[in-house]
Structures are given as C-alpha cells and as structure tokens.
Design a protein around this nucleic acid. Sequence first.
DNA 1: TATCTGGTCAACAAATTTGTTTACTTTATT
DNA 2: AATAAAGTAAACAAATTTGTTGACCAGATA
Lengths: 77, 77
Amino acid sequence: MDAKLIEFRKNLGRRIKQLREQLNITQLELAARINKDKQVINRYEIEGANPTAYILMALSRALNVDPTTLLDFSDLK
Amino acid sequence: MDAKLIEFRKNLGRRIKQLREQLNITQLELAARINKDKQVINRYEIEGANPTAYILMALSRALNVDPTTLLDFSDLK
DNA sequence: TATCTGGTCAACAAATTTGTTTACTTTATT
DNA sequence: AATAAAGTAAACAAATTTGTTGACCAGATA
C-alpha cells in the first residue's frame, strides 16, 4: 500500500471526526444521516477511510460541508 | 443496485468526459496524469464510475477542478 | 496500403470497501 | 452504584473497485 494513501485515509478519518464534533452529534446520529450503522462511522474515524465517491457525498451532506471542504485537511494538525 | 447510485455513476462518468474534453486532452493523457491505464478512464466515461475518494481527488487535480466542481452535475443535461 | 492515434470492449484476479453481527470499554447521568 | 449512552473492536461474507491484459474499430496520415 501506498504511504500517501495511508496518510489520506488517516486524514479523512480525522476530518470526519472533527466535523462531527463541531456539529455536536454522535457517531450514531451521523450514521443515521447516511443510513449506515454506527460501527461504520467509528471505523472511518478510527481506522481512517477511503470511501467511494457516493458515500463521500453523503458524508459531506450529513456534515453540512461541500466535498472540497471535507477533503481539505490543511487545518488538521 | 440503488437507482440513485446508478444515476450518480452515470453522471460522474459524463462529468469526467466533459471536463476532459474541455481540457482537450485524450483519455491516455488523463490516465497518465493519475498514473493509470487509459482503459480505466474509458471505463469511467463509458460505464460510469464510483471511484474511491482518493482516486476522486487525483481526478479532480488532473482535471484542474476542485472535488465539489467535479461532483457538481447541475450543468449536465 | 500501412501505420498511428484515440476510443471501445471483455475478461479476469486481486485488493478493497461495504454491510452486518456481536461484544466489550468508557463516559455520562440518575 | 446502576443504568444508559457513546465509543471501540474483531470477524466475516458479499459486493464493488482496482489493476491488468489483450483485442478490436474508426479516423487521420505518411
């Protein structure tokens, strides 16, 4: 596996968690918004994620940001 | 097997083709920009696509648009 | 004609994501 | 302390994407 991809996955996981916490919603609530189980969200946040574009869009809608914002990791330490 | 997903895939395929043609580059050139074979791009354009977020980002960079623009199908008839 | 470019198609294994279940730990609340 | 809510974890099949190969077709061109 590519190191860049691993970094990407990690960053996206962090970003999802960050945005979710800014919204003050639980993993369960975010999961509900995209019609998935809470374990799926947890997996994204903990293990990192490289979801399909379709799920990415659902996530961006559920998190009230556009895809570009969701994929912008620049303010992640 | 979801109808929405099928529509999404089709739209993304159309969008990739549209943006590629606006750039006046071949499938081979676009493929080269994301380090894939030309058949991959052709498959996206013809069959539609639901690539992973990582590949989506590579595509958006190669097509000189941000992810949101790449995923905006509103000007697709 | 022969060749090259660009595009299309099918098949296949390999890798990855997705969806689901079960269960455990931690944190908050009463 | 007890209960509920939130978060974490592992395992697994199923579905899908990815990567690759080989081939074919149409149009332009030398």
